[in-house]
Amino acid sequence: MQRAYRIPDAPGERVSARELDRDLRTGPGAVARDRPILPESPEVQLRRDGQMRWLVVQAEPEALWPRLREFWRTQNLALSRDEPTVGIMETEWAEDRAGIPLGLTQGLISRALGTLYDAGTRDQYRLRVDRLNGATEVFIAHRGAVEHGDPDGQGMRWVMSDPDPQLEAEMLNRLLVFLTTGEAPEGRTRVEETDFERTGQVDLVQRDGRSVLVLRGEPDALWRRLGLALDRTGLLVDEHDRRDGTFLVTYRPDVADGGEAERPGLLRRVFRFGRGEDRRQGERFQVRMIEHGRDLQIEALSIEGERIRDRDARFVLELIQPQLR
């Protein structure tokens, strides 16, 4: 079944956030019509720090959780993970049909086969909440995948694409409107592209004979950045403890339709993620942020908090580093 994003002012039609972004560039009239001003409320506030955005909601996570579930329902995105005890939601991978260039032949195929015609792209969102002095911080991260043909001609495989901060901001803005007004937003919400410049320096260095990431900044801000970096990678957050500065994560790089799958009807394709099963799939780690002199240091440890082989630590840290910049 096709899963895409809902446009309330176009009954019966669906479109992805990526297509909404393209529609924004069709002309001045479209910009004015599709970019409503975000509502303001002391109960739900949008916070920004460089390219990172998050919401601060004046409610406890337990009270907010049912509203978050309802929000994903309004977006026609089913949840594959719904864990209030650890404060994490994850949507199923949704097809982005906006990328299909419907020429004559493709249009005929699409009308004949309906949902069997595939756009070859997938989007997934992770929502994470963090308790903060009687309020709740809400973060949304995007993951993308694009389908490519194997060079050996044996089938198709999914390749992870870079996270899209524009899509994260769009979905976060939709959530802000929903929590403030109780309604799904009509049209595209305001996203300022200038917010997404990468900032900050993050160095992978050797300290005391092991690899660590070193960065400087305000601890609370860097904690948020680290959480978002993990959400964007294949390191799935299982638990987190802000007081101890630790995240317990599982390496899970898989994407939608991983493994072999067949489509009914005329189209039959083999889906694979990468070449063969990733030997690290399912490995668990502890990622810890601690103060080290004037710096903050991020280290990768075993799930029990013990030191691990340096090549394993570098593997984890090299996944995180690009998303922290």
Rank of each mutant, 00 (worst) to 15 (best):
R3C: 00
S16C: 11
A17T: 05
D23Q: 11
D23Y: 12
L24Y: 12
P36F: 10
I37G: 06
P39Y: 05
E40F: 02
R47P: 01
R47Y: 06
R48E: 10
R48Y: 04
D49S: 12
M52G: 01
M52K: 01
M52I: 04
R53K: 03
L55Y: 03
V57C: 03
Q58C: 00
A59P: 00
A59T: 04
E60C: 00
A63F: 04
W65C: 01
P66I: 08
P66A: 09
R67G: 09
L68H: 05
L68T: 13
R73M: 08
Q75S: 14
N76G: 09
L77E: 02
A78W: 12
T91C: 11
E92H: 07
T105A: 14
D118V: 04
D118T: 03
R122K: 04
Y125R: 00
Y125V: 02
L127G: 08
L127N: 05
R128Q: 09
D130L: 13
R131A: 15
T136K: 03
E137G: 01
V138S: 06
R143D: 06
G144R: 13
A145P: 10
V146W: 01
P151M: 03
P151T: 09
D152Q: 02
G153V: 13
G155T: 01
D162T: 10
D162N: 13
L167R: 15
E170W: 01
R174D: 12
L179I: 11
T181D: 06
A184Y: 03
P185E: 06
T189Q: 14
T189V: 14
V191H: 12
E192T: 06
E193I: 10
D195K: 09
E197T: 11
R198C: 05
Q201G: 07
Q201F: 14
V202K: 02
L204Y: 07
D208H: 14
R210G: 06
R210N: 02
V214C: 08
G217I: 03
L226Q: 05
G227A: 07
D231A: 12
R232V: 01
T233Y: 02
L235A: 07
V237E: 08
D238K: 15
D244S: 14
T246I: 15
T246L: 05
T250M: 02
V255D: 01
A256R: 08
G258R: 11
E260C: 10
R269N: 12
E277F: 14
R280E: 04
R280P: 03
R280N: 15
Q281G: 07
Q281P: 00
E283F: 08
R284H: 03
R288W: 08
R288S: 07
E291N: 10
R294T: 15
R294V: 10
Q297I: 03
Q297S: 13
E299S: 09
L301I: 04
S302M: 07
I303S: 14
E304T: 13
E306Y: 02
I308E: 03
D310E: 04
R314L: 04
R314M: 05
I320G: 14
I320A: 09
I320Q: 11
P322V: 08
Q323S: 11
